[in-house]
């Protein structure tokens, strides 16, 4: 449905490896492959939900998209231009973020007005009086009162603080907003308020969201498409309907099974997944999911499956759903963009 919309973010074979240093001379002991060959496309105006367990590299991906970290290898195009070629103010005006914890993401010594105005001041958008007006307008838009500008973060509840964080992110009128677990720290009733607000704002401002969450019910509510991440890679990418009705990857199916259902009469489904996420320091050979996979085959222990289109709007990286390579194994693209 959004197929015609232009691509705002194009990610191809993105890698971010962190060296682990230790020992007497701080020599390199290993490599954490936080993002390890990731492909993803975001279209203008859509909400892409990114799910995965802690440690799968979701937040590292967010930091890469925000330009807070430089990728080790791979392509990251924002509006068709490599991210590292953007100049900082222009990048910050285009991409903004909302963090998980509204208690640590707002400076406790600053008034709400200064917090919301800061990005505008730094980016030098218009004269001071105009910036002040704009801050008041955006604050009202997120459901707070203009006179709250003169108050401090501690005077607000968690849900209100998250509204302030949203106002700050939207003040410079960004096009892409990276939301890293924006409602995870909020209570059920407040979470619903903030989810509604995020959706309204998207409609009003034509925003594109990269929405990171471990909570599939939130993803299912807000997102157009879902990307499932496992140890630094996307293992399934589908429209919301396809994902929730017919997930393909065994890991995606396990995630959906694990979601607790608010219905005491529902039969409790056995959890098909055992064990924890393996360490990204030493990911398993072949498909990184194979040690936990109930359908593991011989090939899974040797070859890494690539993300391939299965049907329209549904891609999966799993040998169950694609034929094994015949002559040679696919070599991942190792272009270095630095």
């Amino acid at each position: 449905m959004n197929d015609s919309k232009p691509t705002i973010l194009h990610i191809e074979q993105l890698q971010k490896h962190y060296p682990v240093r230790g020992g007497l001379f701080g020599t390199r002991q290993g490599l954490v492959r936080a993002v390890n060959g990731l492909d993803l496309n975001l279209r203008q105006g859509e909400t892409m939900g990114l799910v995965g367990e802690s440690g799968c590299g979701k937040s590292t991906l967010a930091r890469l998209v925000l330009g807070l970290e430089a990728p080790t290898a791979g392509t990251l195009l924002l509006k068709s231009k490599p991210l590292h070629q953007w100049d900082q103010p222009e990048l910050r005006r285009t991409v903004q973020m909302i963090f998980q914890d509204p208690y640590s993401s707002l400076n406790p010594r600053w008034k709400i007005g200064s917090i919301i105005r800061e990005p505008l001041d730094i980016l030098g958008q218009g004269p001071a009086s105009e910036r002040k007006d704009k801050a008041a307008r955006i604050l009202e838009r997120v459901g707070l009162r203009p006179d709250d500008l003169a108050r401090y973060p501690h005077e607000f509840s968690g849900g209100q603080r998250q509204r302030v964080a949203i106002a700050r992110a939207l003040a410079p009128e960004p096009e892409l907003v990276v939301c890293d677990e924006p409602v995870s720290a909020l209570d059920v009733s407040i979470r619903a308020q903030v989810l509604n607000l995020l959706h309204e704002l998207q409609q009003d401002f034509g925003l594109t969201y990269l929405f990171i969450s471990h909570d599939l019910s939130v993803i299912g509510h807000l997102c157009d498409r879902v990307a499932v991440m496992y140890l630094g890679r996307i293992v399934e990418l589908a429209s919301k309907q396809n994902f929730f009705i017919a997930p393909l990857h065994p890991y995606a199916r396990a995630l959906l099974t694990a979601v607790p259902v608010a219905d005491p009469t529902a039969t409790i489904r056995p959890m098909p997944l055992r064990g924890d996420l393996p360490s990204p320091l030493n990911p398993p050979q072949g498909c990184s999911f194979h040690p936990r996979c109930p359908h593991c085959m011989e090939i899974c222990t040797r070859e890494t499956p690539l993300l391939q289109k299965k049907t329209t709007g549904h891609s999966v990286a799993c040998w169950l759903h694609q034929s094994p390579p015949t002559s040679h194994s696919p070599t991942p693209n190792r272009r270095n963009d630095k």
Binding site: M1, Q160, R191, N196, S239, I245
Partner: peptide, 21 residues
């Protein structure tokens, strides 16, 4: 306030949160 699992239709129906805190 609970998001419901998505059905066959696309689009997003607003949740009915409890007002206030």
């Amino acid at each position: 306030s609970l998001p419901r699992p998505p059905g066959k239709k696309s689009g997003i129906t607003a949740l009915t949160p409890i007002p206030g805190a």
